[in-house]
């Protein structure tokens, strides 16, 4: 037997609406119904103009991030059964400009991801250009960064971060976590380049270790711990640079 729940969605259509407004829907659900399925059923049967991003339905693509009762979550990983007896209020991901309904403009986040070079940069002199070979890594070396490589770039940690809310220059949880992930990779040689971003005021030092990013992360990545580890790396780098300056 299907239960019913009231879902209120914040709507915004830039060509018609001066400001966001609320629209409520009654949705039937079973134990297995996810919020994403509920939104799709609303779009199919009640309000065809409702806009939201989604793709994989299984917490891999990172497209369906949104605020559920004020908490940033993936719609596909949120189940209506957990809100039985309550109402649900769905808003676009916080701290990002709204494009339309639940669709936000993630370009600031994407630009930051590009800036940190989130890929393996070969060590200098280790391989010739165009050369193809294996780069061997032990399980222990893999374990150093494995957890931080689980990020799906959904932007939920940015919606959770009070420091990103105050200062959009802050590199933010996911970007700093990915910096740590690549810096700690035994095959990577790009640490020196990336540390320049980490060492700035807008790098790890903007984080005040609130930890809500780690609480909200749908993949258990724990960005707050990656940033704390990044602070240790940056402090070491600071000390080394002091001695380097004197030697010059």
């Amino acid at each position: 037997m299907a239960d019913k729940i009231k879902i209120t969605v914040q709507r915004y259509r830039p060509e018609q609406d001066r400001e966001p407004w609320d629209q409520s829907f009654e949705v039937e659900y079973t134990r297995e119904t996810s919020l994403l399925e509920a939104l799709n059923s609303i779009k199919d049967t009640q309000e065809p103009t409702l806009s939201f991003r989604w793709s994989c339905r299984m917490a891999i693509c990172g497209s369906c991030g949104m605020m559920v009762n004020g908490v940033p979550k993936l719609a596909c990983k949120t189940f209506l059964r957990d809100y039985a007896g309550q109402e649900m209020r769905i808003e676009p991901l916080a701290n990002f400009p709204v494009e339309r309904d639940l669709v936000v403009d993630l370009s600031d986040f994407i630009e930051k991801l590009e800036r940190i070079k989130p890929y393996i940069i070969p060590k200098k002199g280790e391989s010739q250009p165009g050369e193809q070979r294996e780069y061997i890594q032990t399980p222990a070396q893999l374990e150093k960064y494995r957890q931080f490589s689980m990020c799906i770039n959904c932007g939920i940690c940015y919606a959770a971060c009070p420091q990103y809310k105050l200062n959009k220059e802050f590199l933010g949880p996911a970007a700093l976590t990915l910096i740590y992930r690549y810096n700690e990779d035994s095959r990577d040689g790009g640490k020196e380049e990336r540390m320049k971003l980490v060492n700035q005021d807008t790098g790890v030092w903007s984080c005040s270790f609130v930890g809500y990013c780690s609480e909200c992360c749908p993949k258990g990545v724990d960005p707050a711990s990656a940033i704390q580890l990044g602070k240790v790396e940056s402090a070491k780098d600071y000390l080394i640079s002091m001695f380097k300056k004197k030697g010059e």
Binding site: N199, W205, K231, S234, A235, Y238
Partner: peptide, 13 residues
């Protein structure tokens, strides 16, 4: 300095 924060000193203390 724009290129490097002096925060490590204060964070250390």
């Amino acid at each position: 300095r724009k290129d490097r924060s002096d925060e490590p000193i204060y964070w250390g203390l």
